[in-house]
């Protein structure tokens, strides 16, 4: 007896939303996986779109194991690394600083 496949289910909660993980299920192929995903995760119209992905197609990298992101903090990659622009703007008049 052939085995059922495991599918990871992802969804969009509204149009344009970020795709998020809903859960997983077992099914014989993607068509039935979609049918089951609707039954399991969308009984209350939680999603406008559902994706089912065979689990072996999901390849994972983890921060702890796979050095996701640089080892050292790199503030110059982040907006927060440029906070002193507020002070710098003050030299050019006005109390507020910056363009806020």
């Amino acid at each position: 007896m052939a085995d059922l496949e495991v599918f990871e289910v992802f969804g969009l909660e509204k149009p344009g939303a970020v795709v998020s993980h809903a859960g997983s299920l077992q099914a014989a192929g993607p068509d039935l996986a979609v049918v089951l995903a609707k039954e399991l995760f969308c009984r209350r119209s939680e999603y406008v779109e559902l994706w089912v992905v065979p689990r072996p197609c999901v390849h994972v990298a983890q921060r702890a194991k796979d050095a996701l992101g640089p080892a050292e903090p790199r503030s110059y990659r982040l907006g927060s690394g440029y906070r002193d622009t507020v002070e710098k703007w003050k030299r050019f008049g006005g109390e507020q600083g910056g363009d806020r």
Partner: peptide
């Protein structure tokens, strides 16, 4: 009916 051998 939902087994792989039937559903395929």
């Amino acid at each position: 009916a939902m087994r792989p051998e039937t559903a395929a």
